[in-house]
Every structure is written in C-alpha cells, then in structure tokens.
Amino acid sequence: MAHELVRRGDRVTVLEKEDHWAAHQTGHNSNVVHAGLYYRPGSFKARMSVAGNRSVVAFARANGVPVDICGKLVVATDSTELPALRVLAERAEANGVPAKLIEPAEAAEYEPEVSCVAALRVESTGIIDFPAICAALVRLLTEAGADLRLGTPALGIRPGRNGGVEVATGSAVVRADALVNCAGLHSDRVAELAGLKPRARIVPFRGEYYELRPDRRHLVRGLIYPVPDPALPFLGVHLTRMLDGSVHAGPNAVLALRREGYRWQDISPRDLLDTARFPGSWRLARKYGRTGVDEVLRSLSRKRFAASLARLVPAVGPDDLVRCGAGVRAQALLPDGCMVDDFLIENAPNQVHVLNAPSPAATCALEIARHVADQIS
C-alpha cells in the first residue's frame, strides 16, 4: 500500500507494531503465488488473483526476489470429487486461468507418486518468497524517503482538528490527510479505534505445517492440492515444494486461541473472550462442528495428518513428517456465522479499512494496493 502511494507521489508514514517486517501472515504463509481458479467469477479475489499473479511475479523478477512458476495439480482421488473438479475447471476458464483437465496417466507425468482418477493442471501457479517481497518493498520505500516506523502500534485514532486524521502511538501523534488500515489480524480493532463499527469480526484460524523428511522429498515434484470443499474457505492440506527444495505439507485449520497464536499454548484471554462474545462464532460452530472436531484431531495426530496427505500421495506415511511451524489466518466472520468469502474493504471520511484479506491476499497485494489508492484519490 505504501509503495503504491509513494509511486503516485504521496508522502507516507507506515506504523508497524512489531520490531520487524512480515512478522505474521505474510511471513507465515505457504509462499504460493495463486492462479485464481477457486474464486467466484467477477469477485475481487478472482479478478485480483489473475492480475496479481502477473504483477507480483513481475515485481519479484524486477527486484531479484526468487520465484518459480512451476504449476500445480488439483487431484480428484475418487469419482465423487469429479463434479467439483469440473466446476473448478469451469471457474478457471471463466477467470482466464490457464488450466486443463487431464487423465491419471498424464498427471503421473507431472507427479509420478500421485493417486487420482482425474486432475486439473494449472500452469500459472508458482512459489515465491513473500518475506523477500516485503524486504524489497522496504528497500524501495526507504530509497523514496518514506517514514517507516517499526515497534510503533496505533493506540488511538481520531479526526484531525483541521481535517484528516490523527493517530496516537504512545510516543507521538501522527497527523495525516488519510489513514489506510491494513492491520491483518487486528484490522477490526484498528477500525474500532477509528470510530467504525465493522460488520465483520476477525476470528483467527491456525494452519499447522509439516514437512517431508529430506530422504522423502522425491515423492513430490511441485504442488499437489486436493479438490476443496466448496462450503469452506480453506483449500485442504496439500503438498508444496518450496524454493529451497523442501516439501511442506498442510495447512490444517483450527481455531487459534490467540490472534497471533502459532501454538496450542499461545492463549490470550482477551482474544478468546472476543471470539466467545461474538454471536457469529457460535453459529459457525453449529454449522461446522464436525469439521472443527476433525481438524482438531488432525492437529493432535500426526497419523491423521499423514492419512490426509496419503489420499494424494499414498507413499506418504506418519514417519515421513516433521513439524515445521504454523501460520494464523485472519478470517472475517459475519454475525450470522458466515465467513466473508471475498476481500472486504470499508470506507469512512479520510479512511480506508481493509477488513478481510486472507489468502490469496499475498498474491493480490499489489492489486489491492492499486484499488485502495484509487479510492483514496
């Protein structure tokens, strides 16, 4: 966002509460450059993913950031998944994503160890280093004279006396013509600080990852995904070969007990109380209680986790997996228990609040920035 505004000639101050960049969602995701096939045609996600795939890859190549457009397979492991796989193929065509349905023999040419009755080959999916993208942006912003402040949380926000906005940080008051809230896991709280009543609440979901042992990495050449459940915003556990040759497996999706809770022992009474008080949380639990129990069991059992992966690659077993960290997804939830399935951006006088930007927001980041900058203009 800051890069786009500076590019347009604005003076920008960035407030980051952590002591380093990409500390949370950006630094804990799967580093996948998404193609845009999953999303409803015409939605922000669909349009911005296709454009973002091109723009983030171009930015990476122009700034020396590693990227590999390796393509991926979405595999139907039995005949019941074929209708959903065909729907994905239709969405890919509607969204302008290069993809084709292939038979098992052709799928085996890409991934010899995969098990499927059919697959969708998606050519424009890739792997990138998103923290390195942030480092490149920081370098460009520093060269352009932007005011970048680490360790500087926003503690209070009010209208400016002569227009604009004022943000109290504890050590200073920042005065500006406009405010853009891109606070991720805390975006709803920042909006409330600014006097808004956001219609969605952030509920954090932790996604845990394993990786294959080095001597088992040969089982996966690229990216292998399951056919996702259309009722859920999560894509299901999948296998991803990273830029360094390691193979990550995951993520699952369990309710995090803290907004930045990367482990079961990371607990925040305030965050738990916020989730418990929100009626949408209980309605979501009633809708997907069985799914939630399954995810918790998979979190606690490496055997269950491996069994999910073995549907895609039968040779993967529990002994092949080593834990390797987790990420937390900032999922916006409505009071009726529905998960917001698209990017959610709300405006107020001299303010723009990005209230829902989960995956594929990293892929779409430059496009979201252009969209928001247009609104500020």
Rank of each mutant, 00 (worst) to 15 (best):
E109R: 09
L239E: 07
V173T: 12
A253N: 08
R206M: 12
V67K: 04
L5S: 03
A118G: 04
F44Y: 09
D147H: 07
D68C: 11
G96D: 03
H186T: 13
N347F: 01
P318D: 12
M242R: 14
L73M: 00
N350D: 14
H28Y: 09
R323W: 08
D19R: 14
L333M: 01
R161L: 12
A35L: 03
D320Y: 05
A231E: 04
L219Q: 05
H34K: 09
R158L: 07
R302P: 09
R311L: 15
A361F: 00
L355V: 08
P230I: 07
A146C: 05
G164C: 03
D320M: 09
G160S: 06
M339K: 00
C116L: 11
D10Y: 12
G245T: 09
F234N: 08
H3L: 14
S171I: 02
G222P: 06
R199M: 02
M48Y: 11
K45D: 04
A362S: 12
A58S: 09
A23C: 10
A35R: 11
G292C: 12
E103K: 11
L141K: 03
R121L: 10
A231T: 04
R139A: 15
I376N: 09
A172K: 03
N181T: 09
Y38I: 00
I157F: 01
R216S: 11
S124T: 05
D336L: 00
H353N: 08
G170N: 04
L120E: 08
L185N: 13
S299N: 05
P228G: 00
D294F: 07
I345C: 13
V237E: 13
V75C: 10
G292A: 15
L257E: 11
T80Q: 13
H371A: 15
V254I: 14
E208G: 02
G64E: 04
I224R: 12
V65R: 02
S55N: 07
A310Q: 11
T169N: 03
E111R: 13
V117Q: 09
R206H: 12
F205L: 04
S359I: 01
L255T: 15
H3W: 10
T275I: 14
R221L: 01
V180L: 15
T80P: 07
S301F: 11
G126V: 02
A135L: 06
A135V: 05
G160I: 08
A332L: 00
L193I: 11
A369D: 15
R199Y: 06
F44N: 05
A168D: 15
R283F: 03
T80H: 11
A172C: 01
K45I: 02
Y209H: 12
F234G: 09
E143H: 05
A2D: 04
A105K: 06
P226G: 07
N63H: 14
G36E: 00
T363W: 05
L88I: 00
R286N: 02
V67C: 07
L101W: 06
T169H: 10
L148P: 05
C338M: 00
V296A: 14
